[in-house]
């Protein structure tokens, strides 16, 4: 059995405050069910200590960063799930409609492809026909932010996803 990882209430509160601040600053919202949200923040901290990164607390991580990249919070599936269901898979993030109480929350279907499907998926090809552009265009896989520069930024200025979550778009 894996060693139990301990996280203090203080660590949870600190990260909760930070995520809340960052979310509100860029048009995202944390779930106002604070008990649930803090449970998830605790899960993120446990996974950080266990795997070295914020693997989604509601999915089983493989523990190999490269294979878990798509489920590092905020995951690649958050924004489409916010659009379709008003909540991300674990319900750490919710939409404005949920915030206003126009929509009720519950478990939503898993959008992440199965491990077999993920193995089969080919990387997206880069859009052609604009090869005369002076710089490559990078796309954040989490929120869709685009920027034209030699390399992607260290952290996405919109959703705070790290550099490795960017793909070459053009």
């Amino acid at each position: 059995m894996s060693d139990r990882v301990e996280v203090t209430g203080k660590e949870v509160d600190k990260l909760y405050e930070r995520l809340n601040r960052e979310a509100e600053a860029s048009g995202y919202h944390l779930n106002t069910d604070v008990e649930h949200t803090k449970d998830l923040v605790e899960g993120l901290l446990v996974n950080e200590k266990r795997y070295g990164y914020w693997a989604c607390p509601c999915r089983l991580a493989e523990g190999i960063k490269e294979k878990d990249l798509d489920i590092i919070c905020p995951c690649d599936y958050r924004d489409p799930d916010l659009n379709d269901y008003g909540t991300c898979y674990c319900a750490l993030y919710v939409s404005q409609a949920v915030l206003k109480g126009e929509k009720n929350l519950g478990s939503i279907p898993e959008r992440r492809p199965s491990s077999e499907e993920r193995k089969r998926a080919k990387p997206k090809s880069i859009a052609k026909g604009v090869s005369s552009l002076p710089l490559p265009v990078w796309r954040c896989k989490v929120c869709g932010y685009l920027c034209a520069r030699e390399d992607p930024p260290e952290v996405c200025p919109i959703c705070k996803a790290k550099k490795e979550r960017f793909e070459r778009f053009i």
Partner: peptide
């Protein structure tokens, strides 16, 4: 390894969970 929670017997109830998961906690 299974953890057993005592209570009223309502038949066979088994749950696959993650220790970090919010919906599992709920």
């Amino acid at each position: 390894e299974m953890k057993h929670v005592k209570g009223k017997n309502k038949g066979n109830i088994m749950m696959y969970a993650l220790s970090t998961c919010g919906w599992c906690k709920k």
